[in-house]
């Protein structure tokens, strides 16, 4: 149990995907302008990471490993994750339209997000078991959502503040990202 908690905290804070491993940087700047958008993107990414880990674990251990074809894992994972997202989108659209509109375009967008692929590759590299893989996916998703929500909150606040003209918009967002990264580096060595 403590092992699972360690993995969760480790993926969420210490090895945070955005600020420490620098994965998923496009949504970090693209979708962090509004708090509501950031929250739904964070939720969508967490959901997809969780399902992707759940699906790729048996593929790694029951198909790729016995055939000694682990070198094909990147290609296979991309295929499987893309399929998974498509199926999930179809399913949500047909069963729960309210949820579908809440996810909006983000569900389709994260089909090829590197953070999602990253978490499955990390799971394979660290040779986690099934439960550990799920914990690591949830941790990575929670960390991603946390950073996205923090960033969008700061950016919403900065939009209304009196900044020098040359710093408005992206420049100050980059500076904020750097300071956030510095802050998150304080977590290293915690576990």
């Amino acid at each position: 149990m403590s092992n699972i908690l360690t993995i969760f905290i480790g993926m969420a804070l210490i090895n945070n995907f955005v600020l420490v491993k620098f994965l998923g940087l496009c949504p970090f700047f693209g979708v962090s302008k509004k708090l509501s958008n950031a929250a739904s993107m964070g939720l969508a990414v967490t959901l997809v990471m969780f399902l992707a880990s759940a699906v790729t674990w048996p593929i790694t251990h029951y198909i790729l490993a016995p055939l000694e074809a682990e070198f094909m894992s990147t290609v296979t994972y991309i295929l499987v994750i893309a399929t998974l997202v498509q199926i999930m989108e179809l399913f949500i659209m047909r069963t729960n339209y309210g949820l579908y509109s809440a996810f909006g375009i983000y569900l389709a967008l994260i089909t090829t997000n590197c953070a999602v692929l990253g978490v499955t590759l990390v799971n394979a590299r660290e040779s986690f078991n099934f439960i550990e893989s799920l914990a690591s996916a949830l941790g990575a998703g929670a960390g991603f959502a946390l950073v996205l929500i923090i960033m969008s909150g700061i950016r919403e606040r900065l939009d209304t503040s009196n900044l020098p003209k040359s710093m408005k918009g992206l420049p100050v967002a980059f500076l904020t990202a750097a300071l956030l990264g510095l802050a998150f580096s304080g977590f290293s060595g915690m576990v």
Partner: peptide
């Protein structure tokens, strides 16, 4: 060849 076949099958 085996790798190509494997990925094609999964696809």
């Amino acid at each position: 060849v085996a790798a190509i076949l494997l990925v094609a099958l999964i696809g």
